[in-house]
Design a binder for these strands. Structure first.
Lengths: 186, 186
DNA sequence: GAAATGATAGAACGATCTTTCTCTTTTTGC
DNA sequence: GCAAAAAGAGAAAGATCGTTCTATCATTTC
C-alpha cells in the first residue's frame, strides 16, 4: 500500500502553493495543473479541498515532530536539547519558513475555531507547548509552564517577524529573548 | 466635505467582515448587502476591492496612532508612557483584537511583498518600531533598537497567541516578557 | 486471463467572484 | 428653484470557484 505517486505529487504541490500564496488564493485548477494530475484523480484521493488543507497541515506537523525527535537523538541532556530547539527554530525561520508560520497563516483564513483546520492547528500547538514544558521541567526550570508559554510566544513572533520584517532584523532579539525565557545564560 | 454616510457604513461593515472572517473569504456581495448599499455606490467610492482593503488597514493604523497620541497626552514621562503602552496593548488584545492582528492576518493573504496592501502593513510596522525606539531612548534604555525589536516581537506574539490560545493563557507570559524587554522592573 | 483498481482526459454543473452597465430617485450646493 | 453630485435598484458581464460526471487507458491482483 505504498502511497500512490500521483497522490504524493498532489500533496507536495498543494502544500507549496498553500504556503507560498495562501489557501483561498489557490484554486483546484492551479493545483491539479501544476501537479500534473487531473481533477478526477484529485477527488479520488481527497473528499474535497479542505481535506487537502488538513493533510498539508498534518504534514507540517509531522515535519516538526520529526525535527524534535532528531534533536532528541542527538543529546539526552535537557539543557543541550533546549539549545538545539532554539537554534533549530532560528534556522528554520531563516531557511525554510520565510513566508511565516503555516498554522498561523491558515488560522488567519479559517476564523471558525470549530473547523477541522483550526482543530489541526490547536492539536499542533498543544503538542508543542507540552513538549517544551516537559523539556523545561526536565531542565529544572522553576516555572516550566510560564517559560513554555514564553517560548511559544517567541516562536510565533519569530515566524511573523521573519516574514514581515526580515529575519536578520528579528534574529538578535529572538535569540536573546528565547535564551532568557528558557533560563539559559547568554 | 463630510465623508458620505454610505461610504462610512461601507467601510465600517467591510472592516468588521474582513477582520472577523478574512479578506478573500468575504465577497463584495456580502459587504454591500450587510452595509445596505448597492454595488454602484461601492464602486463610486472605491476603484476596487483591494482599495477597500487598504482603507481598512489605514483605519486600523489610524486607530493605533490615536491610542498612542492619547497615551502621550496622559503623561510626559517616558517610563510611564512605556507602561501605558504595554498595558494598552494587553487590554487591546483582551477586548478588541480577539481575532488576531489585522496586519498579520492580511499579510497571510497577500504574499506579494510589493503589493499595496503589504506596503501599508510595512508602513504601519515601521512607524510602530520607530515610535517604540524613540520612547525607549527617551527612557535611557541602553540599546533602544534591540529593545524595540523585542517589543515588536512580543506584540506580534500576543496578538497571535491571544487569538489561537486564548488571552488568559498568554497574558502572564506577555506582561512579564514585555516589562523585562523594556527594562521595567517587575 | 479476468476482474478490480487507479490514473487520464475533458466536458460540464451551479455557484460565486469582481466589475460594469443603464436607469431612476434622492440629496445637496448655489 | 435649479443644476450637480450621490445613492438607489437591478441586470449582466466574464472569469473562476469547488465539484461531479462519463469514458478510456494502464496497472495490478487473484
Amino acid at each position: 500500500m505504498a502511497a500512490s505517486e500521483a497522490r504524493e505529487r498532489l500533496l507536495r504541490t498543494a502544500s507549496e502553493l498553500f504556503y507560498r500564496e495562501g489557501i483561498h488564493a489557490v484554486g483546484v485548477d492551479r493545483i491539479v495543473n501544476e501537479a500534473g494530475i487531473t481533477r478526477a484523480t484529485f477527488y479520488r484521493h481527497f473528499p474535497g479541498k479542505e481535506d487537502l488543507v488538513e493533510a498539508y497541515l498534518d504534514e507540517e506537523d509531522a515535519h516538526i515532530r520529526a525535527a524534535f525527535a532528531e534533536a532528541g537523538a542527538q543529546s539526552d541532556e535537557p539543557r543541550r536539547l533546549l539549545e538545539l530547539v532554539i537554534e533549530g527554530l532560528a534556522d528554520d525561520v531563516a531557511l525554510h519558513h520565510t513566508r511565516g508560520c503555516p498554522f498561523i497563516n491558515a488560522s488567519a483564513e479559517y476564523p471558525d475555531a470549530g473547523s477541522a483546520v483550526r482543530a489541526t492547528v490547536a492539536r499542533h500547538r498543544s503538542w508543542f507547548r507540552e513538549t517544551l514544558e516537559q523539556l523545561l521541567a526536565a531542565d529544572g526550570n522553576a516555572d516550566p509552564a510560564l517559560a513554555a508559554g514564553e517560548l511559544v510566544l517567541l516562536r510565533d513572533a519569530a515566524m511573523v517577524g521573519g516574514y514581515l520584517d526580515g529575519w536578520e532584523r528579528v534574529r538578535p532579539s529572538f535569540v536573546a529573548a528565547a535564551r532568557r525565557a528558557a533560563g539559559i545564560p547568554v
